[in-house]
């Protein structure tokens, strides 16, 4: 049987045109509320267009008509069968909701990944400290940053003597540089999760190595108070931010090879994407805060600012962050 194509097209064309009109309206205003009559009509027209496509493909095989109907059915399918959140408008309120409510929930949903990120960093710290302790000559390799390569005691003398006020006059630019650099590293830590988490693990371990080596270098030089006063104000936010970025990378990596799960890979990835985005949004917010603190507070030393006060500020920040991650968004959390 071959379809009487011109007659078929003439009778179906009004339906296809109406479906195109409804789809254009939906695409132009995806957030608008639609009444039941609109949705029922959309569904009816979609099903008719799908049936028409099947009919044309079976009984007529006219390629251009098939392509036209395929494009129409594809558009309608995306609208009719989408069950995820349809919100598309980005506002300050929705962003605040993601950072303040969704992100801590997402962090709590994947405690194993956060624990592993922490353990990898701690292991790196232990390795860095051990390597430097065993062979001080490795400092140049372990801490490949010019401003940290010198003698800690000499640096403290210069900083406290007011001879290295390198950030004076450009603290805003300094904090911008810090935040952009740190966000890039955090994004890399997350993206390397695509290597089944191996790249993320290496990056976290490497961060730990640098941190451990720097810490031991200052402790051995008798500059523990300076170290705490310098690192704690921004470190209590910045280091957890990197751990959270690592957590996101490890979640991504774990969903690639979680064999115990019965869900297919695409479904596993789809289910964790909103959590990853929420965690990364929080990471960016934390790194922005840490950069401001590092630029405007961490670079001030005694006698301008007592180390005890700076360390107390850092501990307060860390406590607030821990409380936030443990408690925020909990009241609306599903049991």
């Amino acid at each position: 049987m071959i379809l009487d194509l011109p007659r078929f097209v003439a009778s179906a064309r009004p339906r296809w045109t109406e479906l195109e009109r409804l789809l254009s309206a939906l695409e132009a205003e995806p957030d608008a509320e639609r009444d039941l009559a609109f949705l029922t009509r959309l569904h009816f027209l979609y099903e008719r267009a799908a049936a028409d496509l099947g009919k044309v493909r079976t009984f007529a095989s006219e390629p251009e008509l098939v392509r036209h109907l395929e494009a129409l059915v594809a558009r309608a399918y995306a609208e009719v069968h989408e069950t995820r959140d349809r919100r598309s408008r980005l506002s300050l309120r929705s962003l605040a909701g993601i950072v303040l409510r969704d992100a801590p929930r997402a962090v709590r949903r994947h405690p194993g990944a956060l624990l592993l990120a922490t353990l990898l960093t701690v292991a790196g710290m232990a390795f860095g400290a051990l390597a430097l302790g065993v062979d001080p000559a490795t400092k140049r390799v372990l801490v490949p940053f010019e401003h940290l390569s010198g003698d800690p005691a000499e640096r403290v003398r210069l900083e406290e003597g007011g001879e290295t006020r390198h950030a004076d006059g450009h603290r805003a630019a300094f904090s911008s540089t810090l935040v952009t650099h740190n966000v890039r590293v955090a994004v890399l830590a997350f993206a390397l999760g695509g290597t089944a988490g191996a790249g993320t693990a290496v990056l976290l371990f490497h961060n730990g190595v640098v941190l451990g080596a720097v810490a031991l270098d200052y402790v051995r030089a008798g500059q523990t108070r300076f170290l705490l006063g310098w690192l704690l104000p921004h470190g209590t936010v910045e280091i957890p931010a990197f751990l959270l970025a690592g957590q996101a990378g490890l979640i991504l990596g774990a969903s690639l090879f979680r064999r115990s799960s019965r869900s297919p890979l695409s479904a596993r990835l789809r289910s964790v994407l909103p959590d990853l985005v929420a965690i990364l949004a929080l990471v960016v917010a934390l790194l922005a805060w840490a950069a401001i603190v590092e630029s405007y507070l961490s670079q001030h030393h005694e006698p301008t600012l007592p180390y005890g006060l700076k360390a107390a500020f850092g501990l307060l920040e860390g406590s607030l962050l821990a409380a936030f991650l443990l408690r925020a968004g909990r009241e609306r959390e599903e049991p």
């Binding site: 594809a74 609208e79 069968h81």
Partner: peptide
């Protein structure tokens, strides 16, 4: 899977 592109 042919559905709408999601923000995440």
């Amino acid at each position: 899977s042919g559905l709408r592109l999601n923000p995440s």
